[in-house]
């Protein structure tokens, strides 16, 4: 393509924007351009250095984060202070979404492993948005519901598997 035209119709430029990044997150899939613009105005972009704690287990959470760049490690810490890694999240992943609707304690800690940019969506902003702009907020909430339902489904499938395994191993032990 002619560089002159490609400079004018800069398709890459849009991919750099926060709105485009948000549209890639499954929770916000259903939002149109205008609503993405609205979402852009209620999220907070936060910069973290490497090895910085985002939140720790037992905190009362106040929102969810998605990763724009960098990596975040989710881990638990036992009584002796020994850490067990639960997940290593990368660009486009999100975490802490349970705290978006109600103040529940965080069930794990999050720590960046390299310089990271997080996009946070917090409960107080969300509550205000629900009052002021019900339509896009409803879409966000439906997206959140979808994500959590998926996870619940996954969990119950896994639980079923585990039950069957347990039954099988008990049968083995009985024989």
């Amino acid at each position: 393509m002619n560089p002159f035209w490609s400079n004018i119709f800069r398709s890459n430029g849009y991919k750099q924007t926060l709105a485009y990044f948000l549209s890639t997150i499954p929770m916000f899939k259903e939002l149109d351009d205008r609503e993405l613009g609205f979402l852009e105005n209620i999220v907070h972009v936060r910069n973290y250095e490497a090895e910085e704690i985002v939140f720790s287990e037992g905190d009362v959470g106040s929102g969810m984060y998605s990763i724009r760049s960098g990596k975040v490690q989710i881990f638990n810490r036992d009584e002796q202070g020994k850490e067990t890694e639960q997940a290593l999240l990368e660009v486009g992943d999100f975490f802490g979404e349970v705290a978006l609707t109600a103040s529940r304690p965080r069930c794990a800690s999050a720590r960046t492993t390299e310089p990271t940019v997080l996009v946070g969506l917090f409960r107080s902003d969300m509550l205000e948005a629900v009052r002021r702009h019900p339509v896009p907020s409803a879409k966000i909430m439906l997206g959140l519901n979808r994500v959590i339902s998926d996870r619940l489904l996954q969990c119950s499938v896994q639980l079923e598997d585990l039950k069957q395994q347990l039954a099988a191993s008990q049968k083995q032990a009985d024989e």
């Binding site: 106040s62 917090f122 107080s124």
Partner: peptide, 21 residues
């Protein structure tokens, strides 16, 4: 207010946001 709140360090950010609300 957003620009003022965004000045808070990461560790206190969630708390400041909640208190502000």
């Amino acid at each position: 207010m957003r620009s003022i709140i965004s000045l808070t360090p990461n560790r206190y950010f969630e708390m400041v946001l909640d208190i502000y609300a």
